[in-house]
Design a protein around this nucleic acid. Structure first.
Length: 474
RNA sequence: GGCGGGUUGGCGGAGAGGUUACGCAGCGGAUUGCAAAUCCGUGAAGACCGGUUCGAUUCCGGUACCCGCCUCCA
């Protein structure tokens, strides 16, 4: 069996992965807060850890991996949207409108992540469906002396958990010293964090022993992971920005509520995404969603390729240039593997690269070397979720933007290739190649690859084919 | 202020204490009416300073610069 090695944030080193139960390998990935479209940064962990899930299924068997990714559907931004819709005259209660907003956002999320070739998790729990479990966990924490109620809030007492800060390498005292957090007066310690907070009449809330309220951000992951994966499970993954406070707080809650469990054995964190060398942010004007890219005709497969071409623990810089290069490569691979059946299994070196701390960039470089064996190339690329048949639609050129469409790309290429062939035959006699060259140049500018050999002329559509320019040549 | 990550050839981007990463671009050749494609060949690196070592881009320490987290943004 392949040894998978993973860099565990908890131990700060690369470890051989040993599942608690090889018959039931359990992974939890922090999912999105469903208030709006997922941006490109949200997609990175989804795609990267999708490859991990594929690897785990390969090694332990498809049915022996349990992949959970949550939806956070309790959030002030969701509430704000629901409220503004209600004010604008939308029918239904506030709860209905909240549900409507989260439903639509979840369907967008599914559509966008599907477009990136990410397989759906086995479970996608929603925070709102686990409120009783959260309340129960909070009650347990209070009973165990790890939490306290104050002014309608329930707070976790960080001083009650000596390990607090271990995951992120911080000490409570240091954090207090440099804290920029405004400290609520009812906190025993400035670093104490909210498990439950009150909701006033205008906000969604649930009845609880502490009055009508809603859960704090972190408790949902603890409660849902416990319900679906148990008190100890294998892997917990997410973006490095979640390391503190989110994951630190999850650990504190879960380990105090279930002192016999380990919570997650292995913690995986992906580094952040940048755009053209800068942090993606609305203020810099370089913020965009996955949907924005798809609508700009950047294929989901291309986005996936770019996301996998940098190791997950390094900052990844999204650039238009990379997307272009990825598109060229995928185009070439797809042309090469057209009508080819994939080999039974991928190149072992691909598995080996992935098993070494998910070296997706290394795996891709192995695939580059497989052009002599298209079947193996195809199987290997498909292992990474690339070159899937259903993701190749982007190679069909869109003719709808051109008025009076009366040609197909294939038909046009056939006609033009005949014309070029005739011109060339004449030029061979007259030694005047100007007409041939003119047509050749026009074809090249339209994005057509022109191949001329002794035996004849061949025209191939390239990745940047311009149907309008092609049509103009007919 | 505290914590963490990064710095590799023109660009992108990996692994490994000593032997070619790889891709794109470049250069030379074959081929071609000229090209393209293809094939063959090829130059080019490890931010800076010190240490460990027979030997470091790879390990250790420091410096510089960039980025992130500490603000329910993955």
């Amino acid at each position: 069996m392949v040894d998978i090695r993973l860099t565990n944030t908890k131990s700060r080193g690369k470890e051989v992965f040993v599942p608690i139960d090889p018959q039931n390998v359990r992974l939890y990935l922090c999912g999105p807060t469903v208030y709006d479209r997922a941006h490109l940064g949200n997609a990175r962990p989804v795609v990267v850890f999708d490859v991990l899930v594929r690897l785990l299924r390969h090694v332990y068997g498809a049915r022996h991996v349990n992949y959970v990714r949550n939806f956070t559907d309790v959030d002030d931004k969701i509430n704000a949207t629901a409220l503004s819709r209600q004010k604008a005259g939308a029918p239904g209660t506030l709860e209905d409108l909240v549900r409507e907003r989260t439903e639509e956002t979840i369907s967008w999320y599914h559509a966008d992540m599907d477009a990136l070739g990410a397989t759906r998790p086995d479970h996608e729990p929603r925070a709102t469906e686990y409120i009783p479990q959260m309340v129960e966990m909070i009650e347990g924490l209070i009973a165990g002396g790890h939490a306290y109620a104050a002014e309608g809030h329930v707070l976790f007492d960080v001083r009650s958990y000596p390990e607090y800060g271990r995951l992120s390498g911080r000490s409570v005292d240091d954090m207090i010293a440099g804290a920029r957090v405004e400290v609520a007066p009812f906190k025993r310690d400035p670093m104490d964090f909210v498990l439950w907070k009150p909701s006033d009449a205008g906000l969604p809330g649930w009845d609880s022993p502490w009055g009508k309220g809603r859960p704090g951000w972190h408790i949902e992951c603890s409660a849902m992971a416990y319900e679906l994966l148990g008190e100890s499970f294998d892997i917990h993954a997410g973006g490095i920005d979640l390391q503190f406070p989110h994951h630190e707080n999850e650990i504190a809650q879960s380990c105090c509520a279930h002192p016999h469990g380990d919570f997650a054995r292995v913690w995986l964190h992906n580094e952040m995404l940048q755009v053209e060398g800068k942090k993606m942010s609305k203020s810099l004007g370089n913020f965009f969603t996955v949907r924005d890219l798809l609508e700009k005709r950047v294929p989901g497969e291309v986005i996936r390729f770019v996301l996998l071409s940098t190791h997950y623990r390094k900052p990844m810089d999204w650039t238009g240039e990379k997307a272009q290069a990825a598109e060229d490569t995928l185009w070439e691979w797809r042309v090469l593997t057209k009508d080819i059946e994939p080999a039974v299994s991928p190149d072992p070196r691909v598995i080996e690269a992935l098993a070494d701390d998910l070296n997706t960039a290394g795996a891709i470089s192995v695939i580059y070397g497989l052009k002599d064996d298209p079947a193996l190339l195809l199987a290997s690329a498909q292992f990474l979720g690339l070159l899937q048949p259903e993701m190749g639609g982007w190679m069909q050129h869109d003719l709808t933007s051109i008025a009076n469409v009366n040609f197909s790309v294939d038909g046009a290429l056939e006609e033009l290739s005949a014309r070029l062939s005739d011109l060339r035959a004449d030029a061979m006699q007259s030694k005047d190649f100007s007409g041939v060259d003119a047509l050749k140049t026009a074809l090249t500018e339209a994005g057509v690859e022109v191949r001329m050999s002794k035996t004849g002329v061949e025209l191939l559509a390239g990745p940047r084919l311009d149907p309008a320019k092609l049509g103009a040549l007919l």
